[in-house]
Amino acid sequence: MTKSGFVSVIGRPNVGKSTLLNRILGEKISIISDKPQTTRDKIQLIYTDEDTQMIFLDTPGMQNPRNKLGEHMLSTSRGSVGEADVVLYLVDTSEFIGSREKDIIEFLQGIEVPIILVINKIDTIDRGKILELMDMYKDVENISEIVPISATGGEGVDELIEIIQKHLPEGPFFYPDDYITDKSERFIVGEIIREKALVNLKEEVPHGVSVLVESMKEKEDGSFDITATIYSEKDSHKGIIIGKQGTMIKKIRQEATKDIERFLDAKITLELWVKIEKNWRERESKVKYFGYK
């Protein structure tokens, strides 16, 4: 009998949720950067082996919202828990339980499905500290198991998969076994471009950046012509995104082209534009316009 189910992945920003899921899938689908709010929407990532299918719900980092986009992100993260058969609660190797962590722990007290607490980034600490961290969390109520891992290096990830399998219900697969995400190619292409902007731009700029793929046309030879627009909130940011003599936008385009070609397994021509949409994160209509619904 096969097993299948939904696994909600929650935690503070930058604890390694998307890195872990890319590791499990063996393919980069969720974008990664060291900037908060890298993941803005729920993405279903699908892991299938011979007798198990796990539909992971990669969600935005849980933090107090400061605008309409932030409200959407928090609602998305909390809502995903209600859909789940298992919850993965990711923390890092911080040596104390901070206020954001306490808020998440309080939120999880009413959850009735198994909760697996995953301590990530153990490759950054001495081995002896791992048991201390596990001991710090052992008295948290409603936690079924504690699993230390390194999403970057892969340590403990196979054990985590086995533990998730143990908690999933029996049932048929939800998706064909060759599916890895519910998102369209167009969505992933836009996310790759946004990732390159996040990685390369100054600290104050990335939070106000969004990307719309305006067109994506496949040619007879299998290559793609792609046009996308990078939107920012402030006039002063437009020049930073373009860069002196176009150096920054060129760098973003080159790095995005490389990853998009790997993802599509095809050659592409990528054209990027930069436009201003002032204070779009504060306006619910614009948050929805950019696809955060």
Score class of each variant (00 low, 15 high):
81 V>L: 08
30 S>A: 15
140 V>N: 04
241 I>W: 07
157 V>D: 07
274 V>Y: 07
254 Q>H: 11
240 I>D: 11
260 I>K: 00
153 G>F: 07
291 G>D: 11
89 Y>Q: 09
80 S>C: 11
19 T>V: 06
276 I>S: 01
260 I>W: 00
231 Y>R: 04
10 I>D: 09
88 L>Q: 11
33 S>R: 05
168 L>S: 11
151 A>N: 10
73 M>G: 09
219 K>S: 02
47 Y>M: 03
255 E>G: 05
189 V>G: 04
12 R>W: 05
161 I>E: 07
31 I>P: 09
269 T>K: 12
65 P>N: 04
246 G>A: 07
249 I>H: 03
152 T>I: 12
213 V>F: 01
123 D>L: 00
102 K>W: 06
75 S>W: 07
23 R>H: 14
75 S>F: 11
87 V>P: 09
230 I>K: 04
172 P>N: 08
181 T>Y: 02
117 L>D: 10
8 S>V: 01
87 V>F: 03
228 A>P: 10
37 Q>D: 12
60 P>T: 01
110 G>D: 14
116 I>E: 05
37 Q>W: 02
50 E>T: 14
58 D>G: 10
208 G>R: 01
256 A>T: 11
158 D>V: 12
7 V>T: 08
87 V>G: 01
135 D>G: 03
219 K>C: 00
176 P>H: 02
107 F>S: 03
211 V>S: 09
248 M>Q: 14
83 E>Y: 12
232 S>K: 04
243 G>H: 06
109 Q>G: 09
171 G>M: 08
256 A>M: 02
198 L>S: 03
218 E>W: 02
98 G>I: 03
61 G>S: 12
124 T>H: 09
78 R>W: 13
72 H>S: 15
114 P>A: 06
98 G>F: 03
265 D>S: 13
62 M>F: 14
101 E>S: 12
125 I>S: 10
68 K>S: 11
119 I>C: 07
225 D>V: 02
95 E>G: 15
2 T>Y: 13
149 I>R: 01
165 Q>S: 15
203 E>A: 12
